[in-house]
Design a protein around this nucleic acid. Structure first.
Lengths: 210, 210
DNA sequence: GTCTATACTGAGATAGAC
DNA sequence: GTCTATCTCAGTATAGAC
């Protein structure tokens, strides 16, 4: 973890090995968190998935909570990177829609939901985690700005509160509708994403004759 | 549990006492399930809430899972009763909206979400629970019929699949947006329900000029 | 730094007295 | 049928050899 320049090649090599293993641990935890959820995922599971001893996990992370937090922080960082990397020409509403599509596609591919809504324990521990909260604030600020822009473009409803829209978007990322539809297998991934995005923006009610 | 006519008054009295206590247990579990969730709720919590010994719980219910299932079955029964009890004159879409409003109001009042989306363990055990699945099927059939009626009334979008709409309605009943909004305290319960119902039916996007 | 082995804890479930 | 006391087990975390 030290940022000091390695004085000899051997130490640098070892540090690299350590980082690689740490990355493997986070990656494995990410997979398990996506498939089993926080409570059902034991440290034994993680150790087995990585292929190391359980005790060794604790050389890298102090606790199960710290490990889960590392996964969530990385997810939020990637999400912000996606947002920043969107093409120049897109409008605010197009950016919000693109972000929503990305999060849904991620979950269909086995990813972790952005919100730990499934676990009260994880939720509580994350609320006390500094780095996670900082990332969440940063992301919320970016998305909040887009919401305001889209409102002034009249592409988002002006009668809904900003925070309501923000939470609604977050909630879509952990919507169980996605899991049910995937489980029944009657719709393709593409259809699931399309209908969920459409239902979020346009609703499930029919448009009244304009 | 026996349905035999009590031969003497004393036995009948005792059976009544038993039923009353059982109802108290289910009621307490309902409260705790709504506030703490399945995983965070221990049998000790339930016993303390009811005011009896933990061991006594097991005279009424074989396991924690069975107890939670009893709560969920009762919730589904009440939900069906609400649906049946709606005023005669309502259209299909009005019935669906009324049901959605009721479920959201219930949760704001501390009730249990209809879907156990928060707990993988509970979800799995319920899937294997006969009475729960029967109730869920019965409710889904009623709601499914309303969805088809609303579609032919052109009050629900015809391009969305029936099952997609059904799952979406179920998912709204456990939407974390509700919890966030309640936690921040910046909106009244009425506003929360109104905006969530509106967002579900009409979406968060602005209507394009018709 | 990684391994094997183990301590500790919380929680679901059971036994036995009354 | 209810109580107190206990069993059992899973799972987090730590100790100690190498």
């Amino acid at each position: 973890m030290s940022a000091v320049i390695a004085p000899v090649a051997r130490k640098s090599f070892r540090e690299a090995q350590f980082s690689i293993r740490e990355e493997a641990i986070v990656e494995a935890t990410n997979r398990l968190l996506g498939s089993k959820g926080y409570e059902m995922m034991s440290m034994d599971d993680i150790a087995a998935e990585v292929g190391i001893a359980k005790g060794s996990l604790y050389r890298h992370f102090d606790s199960k909570e710290a490990l889960a937090a590392a996964v969530m922080v990385r997810l939020l960082q990637r999400t912000r990177a996606i947002l920043v990397g969107l093409p120049e020409g897109l409008s605010a509403i197009e950016r919000l829609e693109a972000l929503l599509r990305w999060t849904l596609a991620e979950r269909l591919a086995g990813g972790v939901p952005h919100l730990p809504s499934a676990s009260q324990a994880l939720r509580d521990s994350l609320l006390a985690h500094r780095a996670y909260m900082d990332e969440l604030m940063a992301l919320s600020e970016s998305v909040g700005t887009l919401i305001q822009q889209a409102k002034s473009d009249a592409t988002l409803r002006g009668d809904l509160r900003d925070e309501f829209i923000l939470y609604t978007l977050y909630a879509r990322s952990c919507d169980p509708t996605l899991d049910f539809l995937k489980a029944t297998g009657s719709m393709t991934d593409q259809e699931i994403v399309d209908q969920m995005v459409s239902a979020c923006l346009e609703g499930i009610g029919a448009r009244r004759a304009g």
